[in-house]
């Protein structure tokens, strides 16, 4: 289900992949950092390759943390939270609006 450019057959994560991941989550990253993360990510992925040694063909994918289903709430209004408190805990707001920097495509 996960769509990613990560090739699971060869677990090593290139510096380009690190840059791509940083772009997707809009984080600035230095060249030195891409090398560090490339190594660390690769180690993590390689470690998880251990799981490939187990035969899971008969095991359905886990879609939940605990064996539950059909957890619902009724369609009833509950009190909302205080707008003042919410806004005052933000870095910036303008009037009653949350204020954030615009997102640019900076790739």
């Amino acid at each position: 289900m996960v769509i990613s450019p990560i090739d699971t057959a060869t677990p090593s994560i290139s510096t380009d992949t690190v840059r791509y991941i940083a772009y997707l989550i809009r984080l600035k990253i230095l060249d030195e950092e891409t090398k560090v993360f490339s190594q660390q990510f690769s180690q993590i992925i390689e470690y998880f390759q251990l799981l490939n040694e187990i035969d899971t063909r008969e095991v359905p994918p886990a879609n939940e943390n605990c064996p539950m289903n059909n957890v619902f709430r009724d369609d009833q209004v509950l009190p909302s939270m205080s707008r003042e408190e919410f806004l005052n805990n933000l870095p910036q707001h303008e009037g009653y609006y949350v204020k954030v920097p615009l997102i640019f495509d900076d790739r």
């Binding site: 303008e94 009037g95 009653y96 609006y97 949350v98 204020k99 954030v100 920097p101 615009l102 997102i103």
Partner: peptide
């Protein structure tokens, strides 16, 4: 809503 270099959000 875009406003200058910022965006204003209503949730």
């Amino acid at each position: 809503m875009h406003k200058g270099n910022f965006a204003l959000i209503d949730f």
